[in-house]
């Protein structure tokens, strides 16, 4: 069936069964491969997108349940070549090894910073409670999010 989604500020139509996980619609129908598949069970956070301001694991949401909501993916984080403060901070801190967790973590962090520009270390860690990183880049990621928050406060 044809379903219309609001993705990154645009209406996009996908041809998929209602119960198809949103993740596959984003990746395979809309070519938004920045949202990565990790477990398909909502346990690892690699597929995190923002739906109506909240971080959501897109493998766990049927595409039909996302209709009529605002979906933001990692592709919309930068405005063209103008990187989001979080992305600049990830580069400055070199907060990646394999980088596979990065998209989901960036979106979870954006959802946090959108409502809290002055998060404590504990706030940040809690915001990433549902995101896993296997390479052990935790320290750099936490520092990068702090750095981005500072930059956003100054802006």
């Amino acid at each position: 069936m044809a379903l219309t989604l609001q993705v990154n500020g645009r209406a996009r139509t996908v041809e998929a069964d209602a119960e198809t996980p949103l993740l596959y619609a984003l990746r395979n129908d809309l070519g938004l491969v920045g949202t990565r598949y990790g477990c398909g069970l909502g346990m690892c956070g690699t597929c995190t997108v923002i739906i109506d301001g909240k971080p959501v694991q897109s493998c766990d949401v049927p595409v039909s349940a996302a209709v009529g909501k605002n979906i933001t993916t990692v592709e919309a984080l930068a405005a063209g070549d103008d990187l989001h403060p979080l992305q600049r901070a990830f580069i400055a801190e070199q907060a990646a090894q394999c980088g596979y967790c990065a998209s989901g973590i960036l979106m979870a962090a954006k959802a946090l910073l959108d409502v809290n520009r002055n998060p404590t270390d504990t706030d940040i860690r809690k915001a990433l409670e549902r995101n896993l990183c296997r390479c052990g880049t935790h320290g750099r990621i936490l520092r990068a999010i702090k750095r981005a928050a500072e930059e956003m406060r100054k802006a």
Binding site: N28, G31, T35, L77, I91, Q94, G99, A102, S103
Partner: peptide
């Protein structure tokens, strides 16, 4: 010197970075 990783930009901007992303 600590040259920045050559692969980081694609990975944090959601580009196709992995075999999983090839279409």
């Amino acid at each position: 010197t600590s040259l920045r990783r050559v692969d980081i930009l694609g990975k944090i901007t959601g580009k196709a970075a992995y075999v999983q992303d090839m279409a």
